[in-house]
Design a protein around this nucleic acid. Structure first.
Lengths: 345, 345
DNA sequence: CGGAGGCTTGTAATCGATTGCAAGAGGGTG
DNA sequence: CACCCTCTTGCAATCGATTACAAGCCTCCG
């Protein structure tokens, strides 16, 4: 009965063996004879011994943990990615530390990229300073990335996915198509915009009306207000938004002002977060394989921690999910406006 | 130029001082003379020295980290709580490790409650085994809790909040009111159900129709289907759901089947997650002070880590948020049905 | 019977930083 | 000039586990 928390020597004393043997029972039981092992295990039980991880980590020069840097935990987009990572990492004996980069400055963040803090880093945020992340622990970039950094990336083909999304809108017969961007400078924003432009250009359609956004629900609402503020005949009849969250905000704003989706405007999102299949109308969107992204990123990182020197990108497939928020443009008003057009002139 | 990562002795050698002095410059600079400090700092810069946290933690017998156990990261309800915690903890030099309890077994979880792993634990999940959490690191329970555990709790008055929510529905004139519960056995589920029953009983209304749920979006959808399956005259005209996520699922299902909210059924949620103000109709709900819950929980934990022996509950206020999903029951059909009633008899 | 080889176990160094204690330097005072 | 006090700094023990190496004990073979 110790007052202190028992240490390995206490167990060793009780079992009548050396600390080395106790340690071996803990981490490499096969080399210890069955009889000794049993008595050590008994001693562990009696003392209530628990391993001190700090000591083990110091000796092993590893931490058994991986840090994920996430730009915004409030965005439900990330949760499933994290779940995928956690599952893979747990299987390999690592735990996952999740840090929200909104909540902290660059200094604090770089503190995570220390070998004595984490064995590896998965970065989901493209806005971090590239410099600080060099020459530290193994790093994998997922979804977003930082242009200056050499590290494996797990991603989707954002440009192609945007082409598919916008292609769908065009196939429905829309000709005035708008796009609400993600945050400026973000690699995803740029790729999705480029895909939008490519898809339109390839069909000989005019370039998109582009509204600013930042992936957040509220920026979608603001974009909705901006769309509503346009003269009706200039409004795009279909909008492709760079995130589902923005699409929710956009639709909410449009509906609150008395218009209907897809009657008055078709809306297409990006991500396929769980919620959007439950909205009214259910959102058409591009599905990202979120769990798979998390898994692959974790697998990559484990490989790097294991010493493999991977580079290059892993590109996972996306899927066009058609629901109720996209439909052909309503032609009746178009005829009306055509009729009204000449009258007005 | 070392091949190895520089250690404190390398810095000491370069600066011509002892390791003790270097250590003091790092953690207690005031006791070192200005001149020595400068030369040590210069040596640190030249060597590129970075502290080894494992070694420091071993010596300090602390980890500088706090673990939050969350039942389900996908639920956006938690993100803002976590943000609040992270902010407070970062201010005190702790970092926040977030673990999703879905993704792991009890064994793994208990591993986090080790002093050598984390300096404290914030538990947001009421389904953990009470036994395992005893006699380990300081623990604070937030939102949910585990009946067997003695630890400070940061919570809201769920029963009173449910009374307010249901009271509002009754005040609108509803008399057949239903409730969709959270997961069975959960303390929150029970308290919100009890509040619902109390509010109805206090007004002499019949007890609620109770449908099962588990806080998830999909269980809300299922509840919506169950509600729709009732004969129209038995359907509650107002539903109080124990989470906003379920309310979203419920409304989605009802709308997809062609009925309207609040015309055909008033819906009230619980939590006030960001999204629900953007839906159509915007959801009436009970707002939980999520960020404040996170902050207070973190403050509590820091106090306990600092040696204070707090106990008892901290109860934070909730707020009734009225939006568009609740309205008086439509009386026209009621008149019709009253007219039809006698005919039918 | 001597020696090789396989098992088990113990000894002691090691991981890298922190800190109690004491010594030395410098200044002030009686 | 002796003594005391304060300020800096170094020595060396310490945090708790891991592991290279060596030693002891058996067994088996020539």
């Amino acid at each position: 009965m110790q007052h202190q928390r028992p240490k390995i020597v206490d167990v060793a004393r009780l079992a009548g063996v050396s600390t080395a043997t106790v340690s071996r029972v803990l981490s490499n039981p096969d080399v210890v004879s069955a009889e000794t092992r049993r008595s050590v295990e008994e001693a562990i039980r009696q003392t209530g011994y628990r391993l001190n991880h700090a000591a083990r980590n110091l000796r092993h020069r590893r931490t058994g943990g991986v840090v994920a840097l996430v730009p915004n935990l409030s965005n439900p987009f990330f949760s499933q990615i994290l779940a995928g990572m956690a599952a893979v990492l747990a299987g390999a004996g690592y735990n996952l530390l999740i840090a929200d980069t909104c909540a902290m400055g660059g200094e604090t963040l770089l503190g995570y990229a220390e070998p004595s803090r984490a064995d590896g880093l998965i970065v989901l945020d493209g806005t971090l300073p590239a410099e600080g992340l060099k020459r530290r622990v193994p790093i994998v970039l997922a979804c977003e990335w930082i242009p200056g950094i050499e590290a494996p990336r797990v991603k989707i083909d954002n440009r192609a996915a945007a082409r598919v999304a916008v292609g769908h809108l065009a196939d429905l017969g829309h000709t005035r198509i708008g796009h609400v961007m993600g945050p400026p400078g973000n690699v995803l924003s740029e790729a999705r915009l480029a895909g939008t432009e490519q898809a339109l250009a390839a069909r000989g359609l005019p370039p998109p009306l582009v509204l600013p956004g930042d992936f957040s629900l509220d920026s979608g609402r603001v974009a909705g207000a901006a769309w509503l503020a346009l003269p009706a005949e200039q409004r795009p009849t279909a909008m492709f938004l760079a995130s589902d969250a923005m699409a929710c905000g956009f639709i909410g704003e449009v509906q609150h002002r008395g218009l209907a989706v897809p009657r008055d405007v078709s809306v297409m999102g990006f991500d396929d977060i769980e919620l959007v299949s439950h909205m009214t109308p259910a959102l058409s969107t591009i599905r990202q394989p979120r769990e798979a992204i998390g898994r692959r990123a974790a697998q990559c990182l484990l490989a790097m921690i294991g010493g493999e020197a991977l580079e290059g990108d892993i590109v996972l497939p996306t899927e066009l999910v058609l629901r109720a928020s996209t439909a052909p443009p309503v032609t009746a008003p178009a005829i009306k406006s055509r009729a009204a057009g000449p009258a007005r002139l």
